[in-house]
Every structure is written in structure tokens, then in C-alpha cells.
Amino acid sequence: MADSNIDYTVKLGLLAEYATPAELMQAAEKFREAGYRRWDVYSPFPIHGMDDAMGLGNSKVGWFTFCCGASGYTLGMIMIWWMNAHDYAIGVGGKPLFSPIFSFPVAYECTILLGAFGSLGGMFILNKLPRHYNPLFKVERFSRATHDGFFLFVETSDPKYSDIETRKLLESTGTRQIEEVRD
């Protein structure tokens, strides 16, 4: 009987809601300046300047694109050489069996193909997708992040997190409402 009163959930963080993108951006600047690391913002549309406000660096997706693109080019060239000049040599119009000139368009297409796969895959890996469940989905107000709500979520796992100080900082940003998120 008494067991039903025990709270098995864990406190994950604080979710603050803002009325406008400008307020959210100012809040993000405060969190960046305060040195918080494990926090994120949610808005219905991309906000110009938010990356700088949050202090986010350059995305690392480019490295996936570059490495996959370079592999695509190399593999494309090897494939053409292997098929046309090595495994089943075909002479066409007196041209050399292999030349980087005629191979280039196809190798280039392979660069783009694998580069695109790299971009997509890299984005999934870096964002830890696919992810079917997020504790924020249980917060009813949070569904407005896809409509007209602007949110900042700071995790308790952040090294700087403290129940009192973090709440104070959130309050100083002019938020509409602060909510505890549990899971």
C-alpha cells in the first residue's frame, strides 16, 4: 500500500518557457556566460544568431562529408579502373583502357553520393538519432515548442547545476514559467 507513494522518478532538469525568440536568445547568452554545458534551446523555427548566443562551435558534420566524399572519389576511380582496365579490359575508340579524364564524371558522382550519405549519417550520429523517447515529451507545455513556445532546458547533470542558483538564473531571464522535468 505505502509503496504507491514512493516517487521512482528522477529529476532531470529545469524547463523554462519564453514568450519571444529575443527573450530566449538573451537567456541563452546568460547561460553561455555563466558557463553551463548541458543545456539546449527549443523553438518552432531556426533563430538567426542563436548559434553565437549559445556559443556553439562549427558543426562536425563537415568532417563526415569530407571523409566520405574522399572515399567515394577513390572508390569510384578504383572501380572504373578495375572493371574497365583490369578485370574485363574494353578498348573504346582507341582511348587508353584507363584515364582519369573519362573516369572523372563517374568518380565525381560517387564523391557526391558518398558525401551525401556521410552528411546524413554524420548528422544522425552526432545528434544521437533515431531516438524515439525523450522525457520532455511528457511535459504537456513542451508540445508548444513546435507551435509558439520558446524553451530552454538545463539538465541536472550539468556540473554547474544547483537547485537554487540555476533557478535564480532562470528567473533573472524573465521567463514565463519554470517547470521541473522528471522521468
Binding site: 519571444t20 525568440p21 529575443a22 527573450e23 536568445m25 538573451q26 547568452e29 538567426h48 544568431g49 553565437d52 548566443a53
Partner: peptide, 14 residues
């Protein structure tokens, strides 16, 4: 991008 008081001239300065 924003025309409200609080954010005028935000992005270029930052």
C-alpha cells in the same frame, strides 16, 4: 532580425 526594443542591433555587435 528583431525589431523589438530588447534586441535591436543584437547580432552584429555579438
Amino acid at each position: 532580425h528583431f525589431h523589438d526594443e530588447g534586441d535591436a542591433g543584437h547580432a552584429p555587435a555579438k
